[in-house]
Amino acid sequence: MSLSDPVRFPRVRARAILGSRPFLTVLLVAAVWIAASFAKPGFGAFGHLRYLFELGAVVGLVAIGQTFVVIAGGIDLSVGAIITVSAVGAPLVAIPGDGSGAFAILAILAAATAIGFLNGLGVALLRAHPMIMTLAMATFLQGLLILIAGGSAVSAQNPLLEWLGDARPGGVPAGVIVWIFASALALAALHATPFGARVFALGANPLASTLSGIDARATTIAVYAISGFASGVTGLLLLGMNGQGYVGIGDPYLLSSIAAVVLGGTSILGGAGTYAGTIPGAILLVTITALITVVNASPGWRSILFGALVLALLLLSGREARRR
């Protein structure tokens, strides 16, 4: 009964790791990159790959929250709206005495987390279906946006955010650094803490989890709050990178976040998955987008290619077990 009892806990086989969804997604990214570098000179250049990571950071950050929510058995359709609110709101909450812009950042992150918290309250206490609750929240925020921004674009005027968008300490974009930190935190929370185990338990079987003593309400509220916070960070990063916030800036990221999560092997039905898959999922997604841009297709073809590739990848990389 030693700790490394080979009968109770057989050594994880290399084949199991090599056959896992996250690893397959990494392979897919590598294959696509190699093929694209041969087909299109300049694709494999350091600068271009770095650019892909920079775009991937935006999708990856918002997908952190989406991963938590989906694993817990929910879905967050309000991430796009929260990103927009954060990007548009940051310049508006700036106060005169705050030269660095830190106050605005903290205020926006607090607000985004609070929005997520409200989503969680609706799902956990009012027992509104996650799709409905977050959809209603998105609608609500859209109204709020028109109220605060009036539809025009606002520019950042925030030194800290400008730095976040432009700086490359050691050649690595600041956004990517933020993403790396956030990923490490997310992976640790998901796989190395009791909280993470509760999130998996809740998504796999809420009733059995509750009867095992897991506080389903608190866990639910927490994952939506995390999603709100992650969307807030994403909104700020986008504002820094674009220099401007405008209504609709967050819209594309709703679908990307869900697609990245699912491509990474996390079950949309909840209870199984990992953020380790979402990371290559996000990079795969921006790579596909970049390639489609490279082939110089019209917006229509781009959209068709994107949808068809996502669908094909899903079919390739294993289907969900038929649960219903």
Binding site: I268, S303, I304, G307, V310, L311, A321
Partner: peptide
């Protein structure tokens, strides 16, 4: 094929919209 409806229709929205 037993894929979840929400993901299939999400992908379909891109294809159809395109």
């Amino acid at each position: 094929l037993g894929l979840p409806a929400i993901v299939v229709t999400l992908a379909a929205s891109f294809i159809v919209g395109g």
